[in-house]
Structure formats: C-alpha cells, structure tokens
Design a protein around this nucleic acid. Structure first.
Lengths: 318, 318
DNA sequence: CTGAAAGCGCTTACAG
DNA sequence: CTGAAAGCGCTTACAG
C-alpha cells in the first residue's frame, strides 16, 4: 500500500501513529525491500559503473572502496570495469557500452580529451575523475592537481633541492595540471626547468619509473630532488637511484603522488600528496544522483576536493 | 514470448530459423535484457557479496577484480564489503546480514574458526577463501598453503640459508597451514625451528612486519633467511633489516607471499609465492552457482588452485 | 516447437 | 492522509 511505501521512502504526509505501526511491523518481520522490484518499478537499473585503469593499483582500489560505500548508501551497486588505460575502453565507457544498463558512470580517465567529450552521443549521467582538462561541460571531481604539484615542488625547494627532476607523462598530455604545477612551482622557487631532467613514461608502473630515472641519470647529471607524478613511478625511481648508489634522501630527495597505503612501508618511506579519496567518491556519486534527478547544479566549489602533503623519510634530511 | 526467452537463455527446442529471426531482431534493436526484471522473476537478487579484509591490499584488489569479472559472466553484480579483519564483521557476513538480499557469499576470512561455521544458521550459498582449516562442511577455494610454504623454505635452504626466521600470525592461529608448512619445510631441509626466530604479528601490515623483524634482531641473532607470510609483512621486514645495515639478499634473503603487483618495483624486488587469483575467483563463483542450483558437488581436486614461486632480487645471490 | 497468461515485489498516479 | 489498481520487463508453467 501507498502508506507503507511512503514510510519506507521517508516521505512526509504520514501520521505519526501510522508511521510507528509500519516501522514496528518492519522491525518485527525483518523486512528488507527487494531492490530488483524497486528498480524495475522506478525504471532504474540500480547499477552504476566505475571505470578505473587497474584495480590492483592501491590508489584506485581505495577509491573503489569509497565509491562502493557511497553508492550503496543510495541503493546503487557498483560495476567495476578496468580500462587498462586503453582509449578504446574509455570511449566505450563514455558511450555506456556495458553488458548491462547503467544508471550512471564514474570514469577515472587517463586518455580522454575535450574533443572526445564534445563528441559524446550517450546521455547517461557521467562524472569524470583524474588529472586532465576536459572542459566545463562534464562534471569533474578531483583535487587541484596544479596546486598540489606546486606544493610538492615548494617542499623540495624548502629542504634545499635546486635541480629537481620530473618523472611522469609527457608535458601537455594527460597529466597536464601536475606538469604545469611542476613548472610553476619551480618558477615560484626561483628555479629553472631543465628538459634534461624531465622524463615522460608510457605507463604509471614501477618499471617505467625506473626506466625514466635511469634515462635521467644517464645524462651524467644527478638531480637533488625528484617529483614523480605517482607513487608507483617513485618506487621505480628509487630503485634506479639505489642502483647508482645515490642516497635517498641525503643526495636526492623523492616525492610521489597519491599516498598509496604502501608509501609508509618502503625503504625509505615515501613522501607524497594525499588526496581525500573519500570526499572524491562521495561527491562523484552525489553528482550522478543530481544528474539523474535533473538538478544539474555543478558547483565547482564542491567538486574541488582537499588534499595534503604527507612528509616521510624520502624527503627528510638532517 | 516463451520462444524469445528460450533463445536469449540458450535453451534447446527452438527451430534454427526462428532462432535466427530472434537473434537478428535482438542485434538490430540493440536489445539488452533488464536484469532487475529478470532477477525479480527468477527470485534472485542478482548480487553476490565479496568480503575481504581491505580492498587497498593489492592482493585482495586483484582478487576482487577477478571475482567481479567471473560474476559478471553469470549475470551477478558484486557487493564488495571490507571486514577490516574484525571477527564481528566476518560473523555478520556468515549470517548474510547485508543491507540487501544476497544470492551468495564469497568470504575471504582471517579469523573464522570451524566452530563458527558449525554454528551457522543462515543457508545462503557460501564459499570461503584464505589460509585456514575450517572443516569439510563449507566449500573452500585456495592454493595448498602448506605446500607453498614448504616450497618457499626449500628455496631459501637451496640458496644456502640455515637460520630462517618466520614473520606472521601466531602458530596454531589463523595462518595455520603456512605456519605448518614453514616447520615441515625446515625439517625437510634438515634445519631446526628456533622460537627466537619466529614472531607473530597483530595485522598484515608493513608496520607490523617491521616491528616483528626488529624484535627478532633485538635477540642479537641475525637470521640469514626470512619467510614473511605476506608481501606487506616482507616490506616491513626489509625496512628493519636496512636500518640495521643487514644487506638483502647478501646477508639475509627475504621471501614473501601473495606476489602483489608492487613486489617487482621495490628495492630489492621481492621473491614471492604467486597464487593463481583468476582461477580462485572463477572457481569460487562457479561453486556459488552450483550451490544455488542444488548440485552440491564439492570437488576438492577443483578447489585446490595452482601457484608458483617467483624468484626476484631479494633471494638472488651471487 | 510456440503463444497467451499469470506472477515476481515494488512504485505511482488515481480516487476517496 | 490512505487504500485499490495498474504497470515496470522479465520467466515460467500451461495449453496447444
């Protein structure tokens, strides 16, 4: 009956006594609504998709856990898809080409550009995560990567680094804002960007970080600071530095990005930028719900999530 | 109509021409079945629960990704829950106390004992993962932890280790089989188990691994080999060894367990036991489906999953 | 081998 | 403020 439905869904216009009677009956019988029936009646699938590069990356695993929780609170299940950083897969997600119907998409993209988003035909509610500039049309939740990168460089400069290397994606490409923050951070510290100390990578893996660091060291010039665009890249960079007998942090300080759980278990433990993942997930799911309800109030203020610098051994000198 | 349903669900007794016509129509209209309606009609929720200690642990993240894939192939969504290694949460999962109805449970348990399973009242299909002996009543999917631990010790003995330390849970407790494998492996190598070289931990984290290694070294006796029951513990152990200026692997070789993605990015890269996670997930979901269908053919042969030893720098000498 | 009908458990106008 | 009825899109006996 309508009344019971009103009580369960928390609508008004139910007398207190009736509400109590209904709630007592629910408690007594241990009733749990059948989500399939509810979704069928509501015309929703009850499922949102979360697309991340790889779930094995602790950053995305942690993020996924937060998204699962936030979605569950709204009666959604999360279908986790891995893109492996393939543009084709990201484009498929953009057009909601999933085996099931989907109420919304949270897409942590690596490769998508503004032109891909402009060409989007599908209308499924969509929220983007990640460090890239994709224009104002699609809601984008994340930290201020530019400011975070500047903070990282400022920290290195403060502990005395003068020749700071960058390990990460190609300038102007995906990791645009962190790249730009690196350059601006150097400028603010009165330092120069040296192309010989900047190395692109093909993937955010330890192996690539190691290769990039090797390439920089092969130039004959040992930097006294390294900014890696992700923690995993930093791990690899430290491997290369060790092999060349470069002491970390004494000779070369290293800072990463993401603050993955293992950052504190390494030798040395890793200084890193820690985004507020829980807030990112919560906001992303809330935005999906707003889009579904038609209230598209994109609030840049709310979409900008907090972060902090966590200082550990890899930049602790003296 | 019944015929269309037969085609979609792959049942027999449909003429080839009719089948073709139906399939053509499906392809043309881009039809995708509504899972809510299907599940409602079938009396399923369409959701299975996966309970792991923490999704941030790369081993469980990788496992979760495999489970999600295997489940999706059978029309299931996966509700991921984190137990934080709390017995209370594991018991709640055992009794299917989830916010939603659940078709089945895959429970990667840390603390559950045979007595808890014997006392189970709920009848939701259940599959256990993990290293513990819980009796034959509940299907249990996993590698032969005893054999894997013996293999690890055999490897250490082979490269010349004579005094091998153990870092992990208390003997007789959760990690029972790996513990037992450690002891039997020592015996097979003609070595003795020294209580002074065995340290329990309160959690499978780097901090705990570090603390345990410190405690062993504080005994004044430096082992020439360390078997850590998980990779994360091994990371911490290596931190402690570094601090005491013990060279890894030259003075002390270290082997972990799980082969998490970062094992190859560390300094030194970590030797580890690699379970076939994909096979574990596939088998677990298949067992759930069998239980739901009432064909309870628990095949110990099938439930025993393969693994391998991956040798890396932390045990490579000379 | 195939069609017509009922039912899965909800929600939502619609009356009252 | 609350009850009776229809409908969401499937599946499944049931006839034929």
């Amino acid at each position: 009956m309508k009344t019971v439905s009103n009580v369960i869904n928390g609508y008004a216009h139910v007398s207190a006594s009736t509400r109590e009677r209904v709630e007592a009956a629910i408690a007594q019988t241990g009733y749990r609504p059948n989500l399939s029936a509810r979704n069928l009646a509501r015309g929703r699938s009850g499922v949102i998709a979360l697309v991340v590069p790889r779930l094995e990356m602790p950053y995305f695993a942690a993020l996924a856990a937060c998204v699962v929780e936030a979605a569950e609170a709204r009666g959604w299940f999360v279908l986790i898809h891995q893109s492996d950083g393939a543009l084709e897969t990201e484009l498929a997600a953009l057009e909601a080409r999933f085996p099931q119907r989907i109420d919304g998409i949270v897409l942590s993209s690596e490769l998508l550009r503004a032109e891909h988003l402009a060409a989007r035909a599908d209308t499924t509610p969509l929220v983007l995560l990640g460090d890239h500039d994709t224009g104002p049309d699609v809601p984008h939740v994340g930290i201020d990567n530019h400011a975070a990168a500047r903070l990282a460089i400022g920290h290195l400069a403060e502990i005395g680094c003068r020749r700071i290397a960058l390990i990460g994606a190609a300038p102007g490409a995906q990791r645009h804002r962190r790249n730009q923050g690196f350059r601006d951070g150097l400028r603010e510290a009165g330092l120069d960007a040296d192309p010989a100390l900047m190395q692109a990578v093909r993937a955010n893996t330890g192996v690539e970080g190691e290769r990039a660091m090797e390439a920089i060291l092969a130039g004959g010039d040992t930097p006294d600071g390294v900014f890696a665009l992700t923690d995993w890249l930093a791990f690899g960079a430290i491997r290369a530095l060790h092999r060349h007998n470069v002491a970390v942090p004494e000779r070369t300080a290293v800072i990463g990005f993401d603050d993955i759980p293992y950052a504190s278990s390494l030798t040395p433990s890793l200084t890193s930028i820690a985004p507020d993942r829980r807030a990112i997930a919560e906001r992303a799911v809330a935005l999906l719900e707003q889009q579904l309800a038609g209230v598209a109030e994109s609030d840049p203020e709310e979409d900008r999530i907090g972060f902090e610098l966590v200082v550990r051994e890899s930049t602790r000198r003296g």
